[in-house]
Design a protein around this nucleic acid. Structure first.
Lengths: 193, 193
DNA sequence: ACGTTTATTGACTCATCAATCAAGAAAACA
DNA sequence: TGTTTTCTTGATTGATGAGTCAATAAACGT
């Protein structure tokens, strides 16, 4: 019973299923059939809409990065002053949308993918550049020349927190993860002031 | 012209080739044939000595962790006082042996592997526990109750630095990476004192 | 009513690879 | 010398999975 205008619906379902399946399996060794099955369709249809497995993966990665970007933008809009904005960016990095188990695991695998697929690398570099830019922008008025180095360290700590969550079983503790990073930030700011 | 006593030599060659090949490819999608070829033997021989691809991977992972452990032990032996020991542990984490491009890339892939293979997870948890234990032991006399939280943060930053190096092309800058983490440590210690 | 576009799948192709096996050749041993 | 053990590989098997294709069917336009 074919309906019309299925394309965006199917694509969205496949993207969701891909993230779930990667998070579940814990690796990129996921077959198109598995993804399609979870999304409720045949593997042939998945190929019909995306053309290749790689395109499906890239769409999933874009989706995760888009979610994250929206989260950060929203948090920044509601924040006040450099310090408030820094806190917002860090909190947003550990917000519910991007810090769910499956998303964290998928994220880790996208790092691996970026070592192989240039397009994935590109996407990841965009994310890193945006994070660094955000951090430096608001660190500069507070710590001056130390801003770039601090941004690097905070960025690394955020990524590392993700990495470590990917290993733990059970629900990620996003409050604790955020507090850990904020704690370091506070110490640095006290010193700078 | 078969010689005798080849087993340890072959195994070592395979382990080295595995790390090189994973680092080179940037993923675990490496065939036994590729590894064997780089190690200068047939794939059948690799299976003969290791039994399965998974065992080859695990041996490679053990090797990397052993290298790292030795590096840390050595650095600790030459260090003095809590502060000196902390610096030693951090520096060792970025020492030449474990921070070469191929090793970093392989390391990242072992994280992925640990999501699938329990034995790999076990190995990684041993590494994490040892790092945490080392850090907390020497942080305690300097910062008291904040030690566990700080250790967590430093550990995350170290892992994050690895993660980020895996992406960059070119030789990893181990001095800079170590300085970044040491910088955070210093700030925290100044505050604690 | 009828051709066209969109949706959908089962069946198939083709390549890849882990793992096995039989067999050869050199050393060790009796 | 002959037998056993160690080392080694080419060839083969068996499974798996990405991507293709032909065919079906519903909606849409005319």
């Amino acid at each position: 019973m074919p309906k019309v205008g299925m394309e965006p619906i199917r694509k969205a379902a496949l993207v969701r299923a891909t993230i779930a399946e990667i998070g579940n399996t814990g690796s990129l060794d996921v077959t198109v059939s598995q993804i399609a099955k979870r999304a409720g369709m045949s593997s042939a249809l998945a190929h019909h809409y995306f053309g290749s497995k790689e395109q499906i993966f890239l769409a999933a990665m874009r989706h995760i990065l888009t979610l994250y970007g929206a989260e950060v933008r929203g948090a920044l809009a509601a924040a006040d002053g450099p310090r408030g904005r820094l806190i917002a960016v860090i909190r947003a990095s550990f917000s519910g949308g991007s810090f769910r188990r499956e998303a964290v695991s998928a994220w880790l695998n996208f790092y691996v993918m970026s070592q192989i697929k240039p397009e994935a690398m590109r996407l990841l570099l965009v994310y890193q550049a945006r994070l660094r830019s955000n951090l430096i922008h608001d660190l500069r008025p507070l710590v001056g020349d130390r801003a770039p180095m601090l941004a690097e360290g905070l960025g690394a700590m955020i990524d590392g927190a993700y990495l470590r969550e990917a290993l733990k079983s059970g629900t990620p503790d996003r409050i604790r993860a955020a507090e850990m990073v904020l704690d370091f930030l506070n110490t640095e700011l006290e010193r700078g002031a």
